[in-house]
Design a protein around this nucleic acid. Structure first.
Lengths: 101, 101
DNA sequence: TCTATTATTCGTAAAATTACGAATATCTTA
DNA sequence: TAAGATATTCGTAATTTTACGAATAATAGA
């Protein structure tokens, strides 16, 4: 503890695992990801109808998932289509799967 | 959204997934779990030496992991031994693995 | 250009998370 | 019974998360 530099203690992989897991750490974001995963893609509006939160709150959650790299959004006026970010999704599976051995 | 009762919208499984994931959502908790996982069990004191946080903060993180059901602690005076909670660990693997298809 | 539709950002508030050191508890052994 | 070792709880502060509605963009079509 004493000899460790806090800012660089954790490996990039540990940080990445935590980032992914944190993004999964809310029921509504689990629900969002399940929707996107089963129906390849979804529009913001359709999800807003499904989910028990305000549209502005949904935007916030979608943004967190985007920041974590788990989803990506495409503007298709007048709506926005969201999909799983397949590459990072695979990485998340690999990293978290390796942890949960 | 309008027709949903917020308090019962999410399934028990979704809540459980989020609870597990949330517990994994911090680098130090990832590090703790890796320690416990590779060396079957660890003493609080040994982890406190490894990790870049105060002992009291470590206790808090261990408590969160315990609340989430991912670890269990046994008092072995004068120290406390922590281990992975194998059954819930398997459940976490199953649930998160199923999500990250 | 005006309007309707859709989504995001802004402003704000309440609650939870993260972190530390001091104080407290617990147990062993001298 | 007192002292030493270990771990947790308490008190506190700073930051982040979660949530909402109002205000703002941005685009298509009348």
């Amino acid at each position: 503890m004493a000899s460790h530099n806090k800012s660089e203690y954790y490996s990039a992989e540990q940080e990445q695992m935590a980032r992914f897991a944190k993004a999964l750490g809310h029921p509504v974001r689990i629900a969002i990801l399940q929707l996107l995963n089963t129906q390849s893609c979804c529009y913001h509006g359709d999800m807003a109808e499904e989910l028990p939160i305000a549209k502005s709150t949904l935007s916030q959650h979608l943004n967190e998932l985007k920041d974590a790299g788990l989803i990506q959004g495409t503007i298709t006026p007048p709506s926005v289509k969201y999909c799983i970010h397949k590459e990072n999704w695979k990485l998340a599976k690999k990293l978290l799967g390796a942890l949960l051995t």
